[in-house]
Write a protein that binds this DNA or RNA. Structure first.
Lengths: 64, 64
DNA sequence: TACATTTGTTATTTATATATTACATTAGAC
DNA sequence: GTCTAATGTAATATATAAATAACAAATGTA
């Protein structure tokens, strides 16, 4: 699974913990998603996108 | 959860069963996702998008 | 009408995403 | 070097996505 969460999060200057609390998830879950070792739910993906000011394609669609 | 799966599927002329077999899911799962009563995994969303020739934003991003 | 296909819906089971807790590792500041 | 914040990682528990099976309700067609 390809994604650009880490880059978008760092552009915001946020830690994994800060992003996690904003999307009501845990730091570990964010970390695993950033590493591509997780298959997150659509709702969590959308919450992450909204907090980071990106769309689904921008963060999760390969080749975007 | 807003999505446009049903419309895209009917444009292809496929039944829920046909789409389901293409993405290795069940007819029931497709039906529930179309009705917005499910929170599907990202991988399943991506598989559906590829089969229907759409992107994540086109099928799952609200207001797209 | 009757018949077949598609979709809706429910109950139960299974697989897995996510939470929780804990401890290790890394990176930077001092 | 120490100290601290951030991140990695693993074990276990919990919530829920998804599968399976069965039957009902549509929908169209002869």
């Amino acid at each position: 699974m390809v994604n650009r969460i880490k880059l978008a999060r760092m552009e915001k200057g946020w830690t994994q913990e800060q992003l996690a609390s904003r999307v009501k998830a845990t730091r570990q879950t964010i970390g695993l998603i950033e590493k591509g070792e997780y298959n997150p739910s659509l709702n969590l993906c959308i919450a992450i996108c909204k907090e980071l000011g990106k769309t689904l394609d921008e963060l999760f669609w390969e080749g975007f």
